[in-house]
Amino acid sequence: MGHKKSYLILIVTHSRFEFTNADCTTVDRKFGECDYIYLKSVNRTYKYLSAKFKLYQLPVKTLGVNLVLMKRFNGYKPFLYNITINACKFFANTKSNPVVKFFYESVMTFTNMNHSCPYNHDIILDKLPVDFINHRLTKVLPFPEGDYLFQAHWIRSGSCFAVVKVYGTLS
């Protein structure tokens, strides 16, 4: 008698996030300016984002930020989040906004913006690894595949002083 062979085929798909571009635009040069923002690929597995914003009017006692997540559908369109917060109040109580907390936790160990106001120093994001962001966007809070733009409009006294844009692809 012949035996039938059975096969079990598992198809496992893994999403992967990659930075594709980063840009910082200074709006108010009297308040400060973007010193640098860049993506660096050290090797196939270690890629990171770094940025520095020089502040000229210290100390910074009030700070706001408008965070916008966009996804590309015939151009970039708002996707899920468009939130404006008082950053000083948020940094004093990060539990006050769970959505902002998720994004803040994605960068807090790589930035010196990890305390409440006042700020008496330049703002630095140092070597934010793409693998860390990949983990957060695929495992912690899975996002659908696509091209994304994360925009942060930094605000002081009701006026925008800088716009940071970080582009990425989740495939």
Score class of each variant (00 low, 15 high):
8 L>G: 06
9 I>F: 08
60 V>K: 13
99 V>Y: 03
70 M>P: 07
94 T>C: 15
22 A>D: 06
71 K>V: 06
71 K>R: 12
118 P>R: 10
113 M>R: 05
90 F>G: 03
34 C>S: 06
74 N>W: 00
66 N>E: 11
104 Y>S: 00
114 N>F: 03
48 Y>P: 00
30 K>C: 15
10 L>S: 13
18 E>Y: 09
38 Y>A: 09
82 N>E: 02
105 E>M: 10
38 Y>E: 08
62 T>D: 12
58 L>S: 05
74 N>L: 07
65 V>R: 01
50 S>F: 13
81 Y>P: 07
90 F>I: 05
76 Y>H: 13
54 K>N: 13
10 L>R: 10
110 F>K: 08
33 E>T: 11
99 V>W: 11
78 P>N: 08
93 N>T: 08
49 L>G: 02
107 V>I: 11
128 L>D: 07
72 R>H: 11
57 Q>A: 11
21 N>L: 08
19 F>R: 02
57 Q>N: 07
31 F>E: 02
76 Y>D: 00
70 M>K: 12
101 K>L: 15
33 E>W: 04
29 R>M: 12
13 T>A: 13
86 N>S: 11
129 P>Y: 04
25 T>Q: 12
67 L>V: 02
35 D>A: 06
32 G>C: 01
46 Y>H: 15
16 R>G: 12
114 N>A: 00
82 N>Q: 08
12 V>T: 06
15 S>V: 13
79 F>G: 03
117 C>A: 10
110 F>N: 03
66 N>P: 03
33 E>P: 07
12 V>I: 13
123 I>L: 12
37 I>D: 03
36 Y>M: 07
117 C>T: 07
51 A>P: 01
75 G>S: 14
45 T>Y: 15
109 T>R: 10
60 V>S: 08
40 K>P: 07
80 L>K: 07
77 K>V: 14
96 S>L: 01
126 D>A: 15
113 M>W: 05
26 T>I: 11
104 Y>I: 01
38 Y>Q: 14
112 N>Q: 09
96 S>N: 06
48 Y>I: 09
119 Y>R: 00
85 I>G: 12
101 K>T: 09
120 N>W: 01
86 N>V: 04
76 Y>F: 12
66 N>A: 11
50 S>D: 14
81 Y>G: 06
130 V>Q: 10
123 I>K: 04
101 K>V: 10
74 N>Y: 04
